[in-house]
Design a binder for these strands. Structure first.
Length: 343
DNA sequence: CGATTTTGACCCGCGC
DNA sequence: GCGCGGGTCAAAATCG
């Protein structure tokens, strides 16, 4: 389920706080292994982050920069800039808003995780009619945000199953919710919506982790037969065509088709701008950012198409400590999007 | 028949 | 405490 996922987010949250405050203490959690790759020998994370970046990017032209922007701190992993601007070709790994302006001590690095037995004020009642429903505080979620073209979305070897669609207030287009269908217990999810600034682009949020290796052949996966955007029967004839939903597509024919450097563009959508935390407020979308430069093709080859290089199930996933964030995997594509009611 | 999509309802975090 | 908004569930419909 999402339990591990939650822990990871909590760890990352703490890690970000540590870096942002330069305090660099050890993580106040028992589940530190998940992000040990960010930790150095001194028990801090700054060095580890740099190393992690080197793992991801190979020969990075410059070391990763930990920077702060206004009231919000963020990781910035520049390739060609010492400090990249958020809009200059970044993939944003969003996390919960740390409210760094209020973060003064490690005590503030607090995990509102009921499953960690910490300070959460929320827990599922015993009478929960949906005991399997795993919810976490919005600001506890870690997201990776990417802007992708339809081609990019199609270049995905993961199998995604749509489980919801919601109109988002203030957004022209609805948001579509997908979860990984490769493995039943897989917590990997993604949200796809059209960029409000460029309907030709899609803003994709990746959350959760894949609990299984990347499938080598989509054709062997359950459900892929209906996840083809290009399928005339499904798209043009199906009832959802006129609704403009974001439909999944599979991409078994293009296992190596992902070319992030050409398509992952500057983050100009509203979500990412909010993620910049310009107002330093407490908006739900006002999340801390773990930014990775999208113009580093190797980086995303590693994340998205590592198996293209015969690296097995995720080239970066070389250890059990989240060497390869599974939520970095690209998702399926989307078609035209309009509101559907409800919600 | 099995898997996915659709879609209304439900749940819950969060701001006021 | 209340209401809004977002995320998820799950039954029905659909497809191959």
């Amino acid at each position: 389920m999402d339990d591990d996922d939650w822990d990871l987010h909590a760890v990352v949250r703490g890690c970000a706080a540590v870096i942002a405050t330069s305090a660099a203490p050890t993580l106040p959690t028992t589940d530190q292994n998940s992000f040990d790759f960010l930790k150095d020998d001194n028990g801090t994370y700054f060095q580890g982050l740099q190393e992690a970046y080197r793992e991801l990017c190979g020969d990075a032209p410059s070391p990763p920069t930990i920077t702060t922007a206004g009231a919000t701190s963020m990781f910035s992993l520049p390739v060609t800039h010492s400090v990249l601007q958020p809009r200059q070709g970044m993939v944003h790994i969003l996390k919960a808003p740390l409210q760094m302006n209020n973060l003064q001590s490690q005590e503030n690095i607090h995990f509102n995780n009921p499953r960690l037995g910490s300070s959460s004020s929320h827990s599922f009642p015993a009478t929960n009619p949906h005991p399997n429903r795993q919810r976490r505080r919005k600001n506890q979620q870690m997201k990776i945000v990417r802007q992708m073209t339809q081609e990019e979305l199609s270049a995905d070897s993961w199998a995604w199953r749509k489980y919801g669609q919601k109109p988002i207030k203030g957004s022209t287009y609805p948001r579509n919710y997908y979860r990984c269908s490769t493995s039943k217990g897989c917590a990997a999810r993604k949200q796809v919506e059209r960029s409000p600034n460029d309907p030709g682009l899609f803003v994709v949020y990746f959350t959760g982790e894949h609990t299984h290796p990347r499938p080598t052949h989509r054709s062997s996966l359950a459900g892929i037969t209906r996840s083809k955007l290009s399928s005339p029967g499904r798209i043009s004839a199906a009832k959802n065509n006129n609704k403009g939903n974001l439909n999944m597509i599979s991409s078994s024919s293009s296992p190596a088709g992902f070319t992030p450097s050409t398509t992952v563009v500057a983050a100009e959508n509203n979500e990412v701008e909010m993620a910049e935390d310009e107002d330093g407020g407490r908006d739900d979308d006002d999340e801390n950012i773990f930014m990775i430069p999208n113009d580093d093709e190797d980086l995303f080859k590693g994340f998205h198409d590592s198996d293209d290089h015969s690296s097995g199930a995720g080239g970066l996933c070389t250890s059990g400590s989240l060497a390869s964030p599974p939520w970095m995997n690209t998702g399926s594509a989307a078609n035209a999007a309009t509101f559907r009611g409800g919600g």
